[in-house]
Computed example of a mutant assay.
Amino acid sequence: MKIDLEIMDLFQELEEIIENAPLKGLTRKSISLDKEEVLNIISDIKSLMPEEVNQAIWINRERQRIITEAKTEAEKIIAQANQEAQIKAKEGEEFEENLKQQFDDIVESNEVVERAKERASQIINKAESYAVEIREGSLQYAEDVISCVEQNLIETLEIVKRNKEELREG
Score class of each variant (00 low, 15 high):
residue 116 A to Q: 02
residue 151 Q to L: 04
residue 12 Q to S: 12
residue 79 A to V: 00
residue 119 R to Q: 11
residue 98 N to F: 04
residue 67 I to D: 04
residue 102 Q to W: 03
residue 90 K to C: 06
residue 54 N to P: 05
residue 80 Q to E: 12
residue 140 Q to P: 06
residue 158 E to Y: 10
residue 78 I to F: 02
residue 136 E to Q: 11
residue 21 A to D: 02
residue 122 Q to V: 04
residue 81 A to K: 08
residue 24 K to H: 13
residue 148 C to R: 11
residue 21 A to N: 02
residue 52 E to W: 00
residue 31 I to D: 05
residue 169 E to Y: 10
residue 100 K to Q: 04
residue 81 A to I: 06
residue 60 N to M: 09
residue 163 N to M: 04
residue 118 E to W: 10
residue 157 L to E: 15
residue 106 I to A: 04
residue 113 V to F: 12
residue 98 N to G: 10
residue 153 L to V: 07
residue 44 D to T: 08
residue 157 L to K: 14
residue 18 I to A: 14
residue 80 Q to P: 03
residue 96 E to S: 08
residue 130 Y to V: 14
residue 1 M to G: 09
residue 88 K to I: 08
residue 165 E to L: 05
residue 83 Q to A: 12
residue 2 K to D: 09
residue 18 I to F: 10
residue 164 K to F: 03
residue 3 I to S: 15
residue 29 K to E: 05
residue 113 V to A: 12
residue 49 M to T: 04
residue 57 I to R: 02
residue 64 Q to W: 13
residue 64 Q to D: 13
residue 53 V to K: 02
residue 124 I to Q: 00
residue 147 S to P: 01
residue 142 A to I: 02
residue 94 E to C: 03
residue 24 K to E: 11
residue 163 N to D: 05
residue 95 F to V: 12
residue 90 K to M: 06
residue 108 E to A: 06
residue 21 A to Y: 02
residue 161 K to T: 13
residue 6 E to I: 09
residue 87 I to D: 08
residue 149 V to M: 04
residue 40 N to Y: 12
residue 20 N to H: 07
residue 139 L to W: 12
residue 139 L to H: 13
residue 131 A to Y: 00
residue 157 L to R: 14
residue 164 K to M: 10
residue 66 I to K: 07
residue 33 L to F: 00
residue 138 S to F: 05
residue 98 N to C: 08
residue 83 Q to G: 13
residue 32 S to I: 12
residue 132 V to P: 00
residue 79 A to H: 02
residue 16 E to Q: 13
residue 144 D to S: 14
residue 132 V to Q: 00
residue 37 E to Q: 09
residue 132 V to R: 00
residue 19 E to T: 09
residue 145 V to A: 11
residue 137 G to A: 02
residue 130 Y to A: 11
residue 170 G to I: 05
residue 89 A to M: 01
residue 125 N to V: 08
residue 15 E to W: 06
residue 154 I to F: 09
residue 157 L to M: 14
residue 26 L to R: 10
residue 131 A to F: 01
residue 121 S to N: 15
residue 134 I to Y: 00
residue 119 R to G: 07
residue 97 E to N: 10
residue 143 E to M: 04
residue 141 Y to N: 06
residue 59 I to W: 02
residue 136 E to A: 14
residue 50 P to H: 05
residue 38 V to N: 03
residue 42 I to A: 08
residue 166 E to P: 05
residue 7 I to M: 06
residue 6 E to S: 10
residue 19 E to R: 13
residue 57 I to S: 02
residue 142 A to P: 00
residue 169 E to P: 05
residue 104 D to P: 02
residue 26 L to A: 09
residue 127 A to E: 00
residue 125 N to I: 07
residue 72 T to P: 05
